[in-house]
Amino acid sequence: MPQYRRAKGSIFFFTVVLADRSSTLLVDHVDRLRQNYRTIQQRRPFETVAVCVLPDHLHAIWALPEDDLDFSSRWNLIKGGFSRGLETGPRTTSKLRKREKGIWQRRFWEHAIRNDADLERHVDYIHFNPVKHGLVSRVRDWSFSSFHRYVDQGTLPVDWGGDMRDTPGQFGE
């Protein structure tokens, strides 16, 4: 089992989802998402322990500074900055009133990481998610993931997760 480096501060796992689950907006505009993410990370520091961007949602683990646990504002800024300037269809009165474009689901899932085993499970979940969703058969084939950083650092082997083409049966949701 790999030994993941535990970050300092409070650590949270997130799932952030587009309103349209059939959309590929996040990978279609991944450079826009990355740039906005970096900008907010510089303005409101946090460490990205692991991340994976999929077509319609993303998963991330953040380590927040001990004196600043406001992850909601950070996600609000990331989601808003990404959405600004993107064309969307007609919006409901509710979305207009709340100044929403309708790109993102209003809420997101967060989970406080409890211990090292919980961290390891969530990092593995994030990295294996493109395989789980049938986007690739090997973890290393999905480029929008921190998995490649883990390989470069020697934390995970490049063949981690195996090749689903070598595994009989079907898995997933």
Rank of each mutant, 00 (worst) to 15 (best):
R138G: 02
D67A: 03
S10T: 03
R165G: 10
R121V: 12
T24V: 09
V123P: 00
S146N: 06
D152N: 11
H133E: 04
T15Q: 09
P157Q: 07
F147Q: 00
R38Q: 14
I61N: 07
L25D: 01
K132V: 11
D118W: 15
Q170M: 02
F46P: 02
D163A: 04
F71G: 02
R149E: 04
G162Q: 09
T92Y: 07
E87I: 10
I61W: 05
L26C: 02
V16A: 11
V151I: 11
R114P: 01
R34K: 14
F46Q: 04
T15D: 07
K95N: 15
T15Y: 05
G89P: 02
R121I: 08
S73R: 15
H59Y: 00
N36W: 04
W109P: 00
G89E: 07
Q41L: 08
N115K: 09
R5V: 12
V16G: 06
R140W: 02
Y37D: 02
I126D: 04
S143H: 10
E66Y: 06
T15W: 12
E120D: 15
Q153T: 06
G161D: 03
Q153Y: 08
E110I: 08
R97A: 13
Y125C: 01
D159Y: 10
T92I: 13
N115V: 09
Q41I: 04
Y4D: 09
L64E: 05
D163R: 07
P45A: 12
N115C: 13
P45L: 10
M1R: 12
K132P: 11
M1H: 04
V136C: 13
R121T: 07
E120P: 03
E120V: 02
A19L: 14
R107M: 05
V139P: 01
Q3I: 15
H29Q: 15
Y37F: 15
S73H: 10
F14I: 06
Y37C: 06
E66V: 08
G102Y: 10
H122C: 05
E100C: 12
H59E: 07
M164E: 01
R140K: 15
R43C: 11
V151H: 00
G102M: 11
L69H: 10
L119Y: 08
D118G: 12
G89V: 04
D31T: 13
K132M: 06
D118T: 15
P45C: 09
L25C: 12
H148C: 13
L54W: 02
R34Y: 06
R34P: 00
L58V: 05
Y37L: 12
S143L: 14
V49R: 03
E47I: 08
G161K: 03
L77Y: 09
K79F: 01
K8Y: 05
G154N: 04
S72C: 09
V136A: 11
V123G: 09
V51S: 00
E47T: 06
T167H: 14
D118R: 13
H29M: 13
E173Y: 13
R99W: 10
V139H: 00
R149V: 09
F14T: 13
V151S: 01
D31K: 06
R140L: 11
N76V: 12
I78G: 01
T93R: 11
D124R: 09
D20Q: 14
